[in-house]
Write a protein that binds this DNA or RNA. Structure first.
Lengths: 336, 336
DNA sequence: AACGGGTATTGGAACGGTCCAACGCAGCGT
DNA sequence: ACGCTGCGTTGGACCGTTCCAATACCCGTT
């Protein structure tokens, strides 16, 4: 059955009025007599009428839609950020169109391209990598906010993130205050976020006069990366009593590495992660971490986006939120 | 700056041809002379032209878009299913529009409504609850596939899921073969999926002549639910040596409950989950589970959807995939 | 030189909405 | 009786595409 969807014209015909009036009625913009209104309502749901968003967006010259690109849907923190974004976007009467990125830059680029073709009025990008299409976004003057990276350096893009540098220092502070000195760091790769966390680690260590104890091992923002990095750290002969891992996912890998070596956490080894993913709070993981205010970041990002939409000329800003230390059971006082 | 996006007309004017030709060129549908083609290409990217999806979809009378509703984005298995769906959808030359559901039925309903307004050509619903808008979807003749619930009973909807009943039995089989007899079950609530897993548990137990050992404790598909249910199980005086938890997330909660009680897993208590979420494979969790073929389910769902789009009259089918046992370190042989 | 045939190109009518200027009609004051 | 005013309503233009029928052009035949 072809079953062509009923249009506004069909409704008008059935209700015995003009399509203009139906249009007004559908958006209940006053000025429609009660009788017409009920007649139209009745006709509409007898036919199962549903407005055509494409037509509307074409006529309006606005899509009422915000595009969201999530680089890594598998990282549990993405879901929490998305929640925040969606709530705010919804509250503002917009819809979200969510697409997922991928390692392949071209695919990511093409996803952004699609969003732009849909005439999204704004773009939220969630991820720690530089999105392939960001520059295109700027060039096309599509209001854009990047979450989780500080992009204030890239002219024209608003961004929001926690202060990774400060967070890195907080991690060290915490371990130091527990008495640890031989503190290792497992990196999260060579993306900017990971590098900032690392530099926070380094500056705090140096600040404590522990420059000689500096020891970074190569990891990644994944379970596997954390496992490998931690193995390397433990294999070294530096006698690390505590490890600061670049993110929670990797820290869970670190926990596993410790378990494999028969090291009790936190008695024999303290481990602290970064992100504050909900799963880290699961009782059987119970990971001490530097938590980002994930939902807040999502909310604020959307709010920021609407500000820019309203005034595209405002200077780009970067909002840096303070992360906070969440102490659970993976860190403890140092005792030899 | 108003910066109105350039249209096909602008490109045509700049390239000195008609808009029709530009239209042809943009979709490289043969028949355009090389000279025109390059002229148009040049004009297009000088202006930064990007086709307007709304206009295109209006003229084409098709959106080239598949809507995806994810009921629970926070459950890590969602991401893996989505991956599968997206890959298949992309491979078929369509885009996906992803929205998230919520506990609030009305919100979920309105999200589906939005998707339909966007004239999505098909709908994929990922979740174990009955989606509020499913009936509307059927009524509106929008091709729909439900993932993770068997909805063959609801006329007109295709569905795809693993066989939860068989999976429940497999879990019991595994524990039984390890020598366990006092096997408890932590439920996942009163949704259909959870109920089927439970009934698999019950029938397997009864089959082994363990009807007297049947013991289900109320839980939920969350960490918290698993924790509470397991506490209840352990507080009972039934001496359970093994627990089958309705899903992985809850099973992680169960692990925590065991740890809190000082019970060694798997030596003193075996725990098996259900789903096969990637996080269960993290070394420090290492959860034995009944794994669903998540990515495959996503792929197949999309494939099924396209079949239905092509032929809307075909009878609705349900595809049941076999789950498989993944043995890790949370289950072990029974010894008193 | 006229003709046919193919190829490259074009104008205009859709598509389903929104917007706007104009219209009919009541009630009102004068 | 007259023109105002204001409300409810209407037709038609427009949004940026695609599609189709029509056209212009070039080339080889006859």
């Amino acid at each position: 059955m072809a079953a062509p969807r009923p249009t506004i014209k069909d409704v008008a015909a059935l209700a015995g009025v003009s399509k203009s009036l139906v249009s007004l009625a559908m958006r209940d913009s006053g000025r429609v007599s009660p009788e017409s209104l009920t007649a139209i309502r009745a006709a509409a749901d007898e036919l199962g009428y549903r407005p055509n968003a494409a037509a509307r967006s074409l006529a309006d010259r606005r899509s009422n839609t915000i595009g969201v690109l999530v680089q890594d849907l598998h990282n549990p923190i993405s879901a929490e950020i998305i929640d925040g974004v969606q709530r705010q976007v919804r509250a503002s009467g917009y819809h979200t169109m969510l697409v997922t990125g991928s390692e392949v830059a071209e695919l990511e680029q093409s996803e952004i391209e699609k969003l732009l073709e849909f005439q999204v009025e704004g773009l939220v990008i969630i991820g720690h990598r530089m999105p392939a299409g960001a520059r295109a976004a700027i060039k096309g003057y599509c209001p854009t906010v990047i979450i989780s990276r500080a992009e204030s350096d890239i002219a024209g893009l608003d961004s929001i993130s926690n202060d990774d540098n400060a967070g890195g220092r907080m991690a060290v502070d915490h371990l130091y205050s527990l008495g640890h000195r031989a503190i290792a760091h497992i990196t999260g790769g060579d993306n900017k976020v990971a590098l900032m966390r690392k530099s926070g680690y380094e500056s705090a260590m140096t600040g404590y006069g522990l420059a000689t104890q500096l020891a970074s091992y190569e990891g990644a923002f994944t379970d596997e990366g954390g496992y490998r990095g931690t193995c390397a750290a433990l294999d070294s002969k530096m006698g690390h009593s505590a490890i600061f891992v670049a993110n929670d996912l990797a820290a869970v890998g670190a926990l596993a590495a410790a378990a494999d070596r028969g090291l009790k956490v936190p008695d024999e080894l303290s481990i602290i992660g970064y992100d504050g993913m909900a799963l880290g709070g699961l009782r059987s993981i119970s990971l001490t971490t530097i938590a980002q205010p994930l939902a807040t970041m999502g909310l604020d990002a959307a709010a920021l986006l609407f500000l820019r939409i309203k005034d595209p000329t405002r200077p780009p800003v970067h909002i840096g939120l303070e992360p906070r230390l969440v102490i659970r059971n993976s860190t403890g006082v140092y005792h030899r």
